[in-house]
Simulated assay, not measured.
Amino acid sequence: MSNKVTDKIAEVAESVLSTTDFFLIDVEIKGGDTPEVWISIDAEDRGVNMDECADISNEISFLMDAHDIFSGKYRMNVSSPGLSRPLVDRRQYPKNKGRQAKVKYKENGEYRKVEGVLREILKDEIIIELEDESTLAVPFDDLVETKIIPSFK
């Protein structure tokens, strides 16, 4: 699918989400005879439950149909990004404070990777506590990828 279709879906999704405390993370369209629209949403200070995803899915589908984004059938999937997805929006960081993370960042033109606990989320950077209890400040502008490591304690 073209970026134009994805952009239109994102625009519709953002209009629906603007009346909630959720924000848009991503829109993907997977091809096939029946296109599948995957919309990832998140909230700054809480998780996303299935009932909320269903309500948002219904609203977005209604508006997509009203705007004739697809001429035929399609499938809609609205969900939280899940732990397997990297954090892509600054608003996702505060609720993950205190959690273990793998962080890839760029420093002086080179890629570096560290693993540690997200100790502080500041306006322009994150502070990671490393295994040796030292801390590392990484500016948001230098972040390449941050993935939360699930804890099953």
Rank of each mutant, 00 (worst) to 15 (best):
M1H: 10
N3P: 00
N3G: 15
K4H: 05
V5P: 08
V5N: 09
V5K: 11
K8T: 06
K8Q: 13
A10Y: 01
A10H: 02
E11V: 06
V12L: 12
V12Q: 03
V16Y: 00
V16E: 07
L17W: 08
S18T: 03
F22P: 03
F22M: 10
F23W: 13
I25Q: 00
I25V: 13
V27F: 03
E28M: 13
E28C: 04
I29Y: 06
G32L: 13
I39C: 04
S40I: 07
R46M: 07
G47K: 15
N49Y: 02
M50S: 09
M50C: 05
E52C: 10
A54M: 11
D55Y: 11
I56A: 10
S57K: 07
E59T: 01
E59D: 07
I60T: 03
S61C: 04
S61A: 12
L63D: 05
M64L: 15
D65H: 00
A66R: 08
A66V: 10
H67R: 12
D68H: 14
I69T: 15
I69D: 09
F70P: 00
F70W: 06
S71I: 10
G72Q: 07
G72M: 09
G72F: 11
Y74F: 14
M76I: 11
S80D: 02
P81N: 05
L83P: 05
L83H: 07
R85Y: 06
R85T: 05
R85V: 05
L87W: 15
V88F: 10
D89M: 05
Q92F: 00
P94C: 11
K97S: 14
K97N: 12
G98E: 04
R99G: 02
R99M: 13
A101Q: 10
K102E: 07
V103D: 01
K104V: 07
K104C: 02
Y105N: 04
Y105L: 12
E107R: 00
G109R: 02
E110S: 05
E110W: 06
Y111C: 04
K113H: 06
E115R: 01
E115Q: 01
E115N: 00
E115D: 00
E115P: 03
L118N: 09
R119Q: 14
E120F: 10
K123A: 15
K123M: 07
K123I: 09
D124S: 14
D124F: 14
E125G: 02
I127D: 06
I128N: 00
E129I: 03
E131P: 02
E131Q: 08
D132V: 11
D132G: 09
E133T: 15
E133L: 14
S134F: 07
S134I: 11
L136S: 03
A137W: 08
P139Q: 08
P139W: 13
D141L: 04
D141R: 04
D141S: 09
D142I: 01
L143A: 03
L143V: 04
V144I: 13
E145F: 02
E145N: 05
T146A: 08
K147W: 12
P150H: 09
F152G: 06
K153F: 10
K153V: 08
